[in-house]
Amino acid sequence: MPILNGVSLDIRQGERVALIGANGAGKSTLLRCLAGLVPLSAGDVEILGETFSGSPSARQRKALRRQLGFVFQFHGLVRRTSALSNVVNGYIGQGHGMRAWHQMLAPHTVREEARAALEAVGLGEKWDARADTLSGGQSQRVAIARAIVHKPSLIIADEPAASLDPAAGSDIMTLFHRLAGARGCTLLFTSHDMNHALSYADRVIALKAGTVMLDAASSDLTPADLEPVFHGD
């Protein structure tokens, strides 16, 4: 049983796109397909100059990772290492090999870039705090720093605010919006929150049962337009 059906999207460089839909609509699967984390059973993906069907080749995967930052709902930090080490881990896949395993092993430039990324997310002072001592919002900020440290041209975020309280969730979305704008990178995020979709994206794409139900500029939409996406017809 395919999870996605006939989904056809074209996202331009620098666009900020919200992908919304109820649980099970296929949002996370679509993001994972785009990033080459889940193999496609049919169709193809053209992303960041690479085209693949099925799974990306090793070369394509490597090329994608250089230009892509991925943020997960549950941050996925390594709990027993510092915030700085977690951000240094963002260089894994960028050709630094074992020197990206831990901040102790990292070259000076990588450590400085990692500190700058932590400062960009407002956690410059917390560079040596262990990840498991950070709050949910701070952890998600470190995850964002890890995703942006290698200066990707596309950031994919899967429900980045879903595990946070409303205030922390809004802070995270504001941060995403600001960082993507400042760095000119494309932002594609999923959300359950209509307000987040309308406030922080230029374009909203709604999925329902694996198909695209709505694709419009956020400025043309009101919350009432998005109601059917979550609450049936």
Partner: peptide, 24 residues
């Protein structure tokens, strides 16, 4: 989750071992 996050960042199996599994 940390393994998946590093995998998404292009980590090899040995990177995941030493960067995520060993500290954990």
């Amino acid at each position: 989750q940390s393994r998946e996050a590093l995998d998404a960042g292009g980590a090899r199996k040995i990177d995941i071992l030493f960067a995520a599994v060993v500290p954990d």
